[in-house]
Amino acid sequence: MSAPTSVAPVVVARGERIGDGLDAVMRIVEVPMATVQRLLGHARMPYVFILPNMLLFTVFVFVPVGLAIAYAFTGGTNLLIWDRPFVGLENFKALLDCGSYLEPSTCRYNLFWTAVHNTWWYTLLNTLGTLFFALVTALVLNRLTRGRGFFRAVFFYPVLLSPVVVGLIWQWFLAREGLLNGFLTDWFDTRIIFLLEVGWSRAWVVYVSIWFHMGFFMLIILAGLQAIPRDIYEAAEIDGTSQWRQFWCLTLPLLLPNLLVVTVLLLIRSVQVFDEAWVLTNGGGPGTANTFIVQFIYQTAFSPDLRLYGLASAASVLMGIALLVLTLSQLWLAKKAEV
């Protein structure tokens, strides 16, 4: 809250002179704000303070939410809502028009259903994979008596990188001339163009996502592990409980609420996969093997030759509903975890 007692008086005085300097500058804002306070009275000032934030939220979140729903019921390629004809449920019908939902090629917008299928598989594998690696890593770090801070930092570091950077780093690592192919040539005398083969590229997209985000979830699980009181284990040890049973009967149940929240959070994030996959696969390739829902929305809306804002919004609304269900279940789980 305040400077430690060791701060030398000279430093305090200097800091205060700087503060006074800033003060003079702030007079520019302060004087009008004081006038506002005189005009409105002190009881209305909180509204003044919260106004800029609420204004931006309204313009950039609340209005777009309303517009997204409105767009979903209009057609044409005009961007401005008042130039767009009302088409009712047409966009939703078009998206959902399918011979068999399991077979994207039988659908009217097969790209959408390809994206849905890709997203579904990605979500499943990414959630399970991240959960596994994050849990094991958290358990390992929780166990380390030395070097925990270092390893925690190392595993968390990729989380802070940008999706573009991650995509490029891995694209280069997996490239024809990349390091991995160098090893493959050395050891097996073969080269695989990973990102141009459907199966390999999908596997690598999931792998890179795990690599990218694992540290974040590991940190949350680690915090949960460290919140488990140690004396519980000591009591179990006195009771002669085996290590296995301690894990299955103590650690796991006590960690479960934490893991559930992490799982839902992972699901929410996975459904929205876009940036790093887009950069890694040069826009969802090979073909449409790594085209996900967000990319479908982005391309449908912003490709110069499509500009189907209504269709994109309808897809957004469908995804928004799915996310809302997931988010509400997360809130519900978080609330339950607290009890």
Binding site: V65, S316, L323
Partner: peptide, 14 residues
């Protein structure tokens, strides 16, 4: 609860 990916089209219109 409202990610950018859901509102990117209308947000762009704004």
């Amino acid at each position: 609860m409202i990610p950018l990916s859901v509102i990117m089209v209308p947000a762009f219109m704004v």
